[in-house]
Structures are given as C-alpha cells and as structure tokens.
Nucleic acid binder design. Sequence first.
DNA 1: GTCTATACGTCGATAGAC
DNA 2: GTCTATCGACGTATAGAC
Lengths: 221, 221
Amino acid sequence: MTTAAREQVGAKGERTRRQIIVGALQALATGGVAATTTRDIAAGAGVRLATLHYHFESKSALLLAVLEHLIDETTTALREETGDTADIASCIRGSLRAGWRYLTRTLELQIVQYELTLYALRRDDAVGLAGYQYDAYIKVYQDILQGVAGRTGELDAAECADVARFMLAGIDGLLLQELAKPNRTRSSHAIETLIAATQVFASGLSNNRKARKARRPATRG
Amino acid sequence: MTTAAREQVGAKGERTRRQIIVGALQALATGGVAATTTRDIAAGAGVRLATLHYHFESKSALLLAVLEHLIDETTTALREETGDTADIASCIRGSLRAGWRYLTRTLELQIVQYELTLYALRRDDAVGLAGYQYDAYIKVYQDILQGVAGRTGELDAAECADVARFMLAGIDGLLLQELAKPNRTRSSHAIETLIAATQVFASGLSNNRKARKARRPATRG
DNA sequence: GTCTATACGTCGATAGAC
DNA sequence: GTCTATCGACGTATAGAC
C-alpha cells in the first residue's frame, strides 16, 4: 500500500517524498497533528513549502501518507517482535506481551496514529484507510495464531480471527487508558489479565470444537 | 466539573455560554474537530465571532469545555441506562449491553470525544482532563458493580475497579473497531464474548477470595 | 457585564519564473 | 523539480457601543 497510488517515479522525487514523510512524522510526534503546520514539516524535512506541495496534493494527502507509513512500520514491528511458540495459550501470552512491549516503547507514535486514524475517518476518500488499518493489525495476530493452530489443530482460521479481534480490542483499550493516565505497573497487570481472559476464550472455542467432533465423528473423518 | 472554573456569573452570559457549547458540539459532530472553525461554531450557535471569544478565552478553551460537557452527558447516560441486577454475572451482562447500546446510538458523539481526548492529551494544561475522563467512566462501572457486590459479597472495592477497567478497555477497543470498519452484527458477537470473558475474570477473583477465606478463616472473623 | 466592528499575523494553497 | 511571491481564510486581539 505504501508505494501505491503514486504519480512521480523519478528517483530524486522518490527520495524527497520519503524525506518529507519521515520529517512529517517526527514533527507530528512532537507537536501533535492539530498543531503541526506544513511550514513546520517543510522546515523539519529541509525542503521549501512549495516543494512539499509539489510532492503532495494537499496537507491532507501528506497526513494520510504518513498514516500508511505508520501502519506498515507497526505491522512489520509487531511481526518481528513475536517469537515461535508451542501451543495457542503460550502464543497468546507471547504475542500480547510482545505487542505491549512495542506499543509502550513507541507511545508518541501511537498517539499520532490515533490522531491520524480519526482524521482519516472524517475524510470520505480515506475511511477505507482506517478500516484497512484494523484489518492489517487483526491479520498480524491472526497469522501468528494460525501459525501455531495449523500445527496443533486447536483453532480454525475463523476462530483465530475472532481471538485476534478480541486481543486487539483489549490491547487497544488498555493503550488508551495508559495514554490518558500513565501507570505502567497497573497496565502490566491489566495485560496479564487480558492474556488470561484471551486464553480462556480460545480454549473455550477449542473445547467446543472437540465436543462437536466427539458428537459427530462421521462428519469429520 | 462542568460549572467549575467559571468567570462570569450573570444569567444571560450563562445561557449564551451554554448555547455556544451546544452549537459547537453539533458543528464538531458534523464536520470533525480539525475541520470546524470558530466562525462555523459562532454561526451555528447564532452569535458573532467576537461574542464567542468573550465567553471563551480561546478556541482551545471552548473545545475543552465541550469535552467536559460530553463527559458529563456520557456518565449520566451510562448510569441511567443500566438497571438493577441480582448477581455480578448478570450485572456485567446488563451494564455492558446497556453501555454498548448507548455508544452505538451516539457514534458521532463518540468520534468527537476521541478527537477531543487526544486534543486534550496534547495540551499541557489539559492532560488531567483526559485522565479525569477515564477515571469517571471506570467509576461508573465500578459503582454499578459495587452496588451488587455490596449485597452478595462477591467482590471488594478494588476488585470491582479492576473488573470495571477490564470492561472499559474491552468496550473501548471494540468501539474503535466498529468506528473504523462498521459491522453491527460482528460487534454484537464481540460484545457477548467480552461479557463472557469479564464474567470469567470476575468469578476467578471471587473464587480466589473464597479460597483465601477457607484457608485462613481466623483473619476474616 | 454583554456584545460588536475591525484589524493583525499565520495558515494551506497556488502561480509563474527559473 | 524547486524557487519567490502572493492569495483568501483562519484564530486571535482589542477599542468601543449598549
């Protein structure tokens, strides 16, 4: 998605464009989306104001490009942060702890991401980007779960997606609480609670699965 | 909190001030915080631009006043929406379903509230308001739970607060998912999952409590 | 005390020279 | 592809009418 929907293809332009996005992200993280002007961004990226508008049709288009960049960075980081595990329960524990570790390391970026997501929701031409974002994050967790479930057979694809959605909702809600009223100790405990709750949810699904199998063995083999 | 920190006390001024806040809320809900100008708000509220700035020191101060108004409205609505219940499990089910019903009825207001909360987080003089907001919502659910727990003895105050925080995180996360990619059916199922998970969490706390009591009966009577 | 008219500096965006 | 110069609209400040 990052390199799609592009107009100019020159190598120089490509470099300048990326330079503006990175500079914009830094400016946005420092002062917030509402307070950051295009002049701030241009100065931070080392280009003139008019140059910025040559590469991006509008401030809006630049902000959405920054959001795409953030989504890519976050999904990549989340995938790399998580290690292999033996069963679903430890996979849930591992990916939630790893995800939380990444988010708390990058709190400023997460605020920008919330700001930009809400910004995208308000633009008719970008509501899809907000939806894409949540699909992408759910898919990260779903893929991680399915990597394990594929071997153990504990959950099918749809069930992994449901568990992933539950995990994302919990971690999202706790992140908002941590941003509004920071308290790492309290949040760490809350994450452990979320881990336990997700494990119960997943094993509930898994048990239903076994029960169905036992009741109607012919339909499965 | 709404009527605190006021300067003018005249009845006329009070009415105008309220009129501006309500007009502002409507304008913000329609166009979003970023796109709403003070001129829009003034026109919508039926006052002159300069009148707006007589009642509010700045656009910032007006936006924060709108956030306070929203917090008050939401906490009141959440308390009224929830009925009495016999035990903690049905209390959790009732308050989560009631809360979700209210939020989905007022999605536009919820977007504005997220926008304004993030806005407050960026202002050094208003970070406290963001924290106050989450404390207020947690207290709503905590009070509802304690009303039941006080009779049944299932949970103490601190445990009610933990359960309340878990509920808020879950509902907050699912609200974000619903806003980013609306799907009422999917969200309703997710809320039922959250209800079940919260009930398991609460009954786990409650069982620990009974186990402690059985192990050390002297310390309790 | 309540409101208005008017003006100021900065914002996002653009035109046209280079 | 980048520059300077400039536009209307924005948030804000204030002197004065009632």
